[in-house]
Simulated assay, not measured.
Amino acid sequence: MEYSIRELADLAGISTRTLRYYDEIDLLKPCKVNENGMRFYGKQEVDLLQQIMFYREHDVKLDVIQQIIHQPDFDVEEALKEHLSVLLKKKERILALIRTVELTLDDWKGAYHMSDQMKFEAFKESLVEKHEQKYGKEAREKYGDESVDASHKKILNMTEQDYERFQNLEKEVLRQLEEAVKEGAKPDSETGKRIVMLHKEWLGFTWKEYTAQAHNGLVQMYLADDRFLQYYNRNVNGCAEFLVAAVQCWAK
């Protein structure tokens, strides 16, 4: 069965503009175009669009999706298994959060006593799972399973105060980086030193042992990985570069 661009857009719940853009960037080409310029899509294109939408649901960028699905050895079955695995883990996180909300409501009503530790367990488990999905493979290859598992354990064992400090430190590092870059501060200045000390403290919540060498190695990875670059430079360009240079100066 073939679909016009309008029919496929309606079927998938997306806009015809999106499909035209996918055609322009060679992500999803129609199987044919008639003499009037009307695009038509067949079964292969429908299946490919489904894959694209699965990856988009996981926040994968379009250029990365293009590299994945247009590989000669792209395996649809394996891709579907991967999607299922990711979605099941996401389901587990959501169910854990739902359970936390339910228990918190019971606690407020006096029907159940919820410890302070329990109030944050689901959030910490969700954080660990997200880190594992995003960076787990690379981290395990680079540092080994024992080191990564130990880091996850430290997160799960955080007290309420530790978890709050850990979350706030991450935000504070980014805030001060953005201010430093906007104000034209130098990485080797006292401002740079202060940011490095905050970043070091933040790492201490998850690292089994701190070393300046490991700190430098980590921030160098920030420059090589688009995910980290986009995180640190999301509001102000140059933040990731400032952090790397500051760590080189002040990590001890």
Rank of each mutant, 00 (worst) to 15 (best):
R17E: 13
R93I: 13
D23A: 11
V86Y: 15
A185N: 14
G13P: 02
Q230I: 10
V86P: 09
K208V: 10
G192M: 03
A246H: 15
G238N: 08
H113D: 10
A180Y: 13
Q220G: 12
E178S: 00
L84H: 15
V46I: 12
S85R: 13
A214D: 00
P187Y: 10
K109M: 10
A251N: 08
R194G: 06
L174C: 04
A111T: 07
N168D: 10
E77Y: 09
Q213L: 06
L62R: 14
L218P: 03
K32W: 13
E164R: 04
E179V: 11
H70W: 06
V247C: 07
I14A: 10
M158F: 05
K182R: 12
K137T: 08
T16D: 11
E170N: 12
K109S: 03
Q71M: 02
D226I: 13
G144T: 01
K61G: 12
V60R: 04
D75S: 13
Y163G: 01
D75C: 12
F123K: 05
N168F: 08
G217F: 00
S4Q: 15
S85I: 11
R165V: 02
E201A: 04
M197R: 12
A79G: 07
G110V: 01
L49G: 08
T206A: 15
G192A: 15
K89N: 15
W207S: 06
T211R: 02
L8D: 03
L27I: 04
D116R: 15
N235Q: 09
R6G: 10
V219H: 14
H70D: 07
N36K: 13
F120P: 05
A224P: 04
F74S: 15
G42H: 06
C249D: 09
Y231W: 04
L95W: 08
A240Q: 01
E190Q: 14
V33C: 03
K90G: 11
K124T: 02
E241P: 04
T100F: 13
A150W: 07
M38V: 09
A122H: 05
V219S: 09
V86A: 14
E92Y: 07
Y210C: 00
E172Q: 07
A240W: 09
Y55D: 01
N36C: 04
V219K: 08
S4N: 10
L223M: 09
W207G: 12
K90T: 11
S151Y: 05
E121A: 11
A214E: 06
Y41G: 02
E179P: 04
E160H: 07
Q51G: 00
W250P: 09
E170C: 09
K154A: 15
Y135A: 12
A214G: 08
A139V: 03
K43E: 10
A111H: 15
A185F: 01
R234F: 00
K208F: 12
Q176T: 01
K193H: 01
L62H: 10
Q66K: 14
A9H: 06
I195D: 11
A251V: 11
E78Y: 08
I25L: 06
Q161W: 00
E160K: 09
S85C: 08
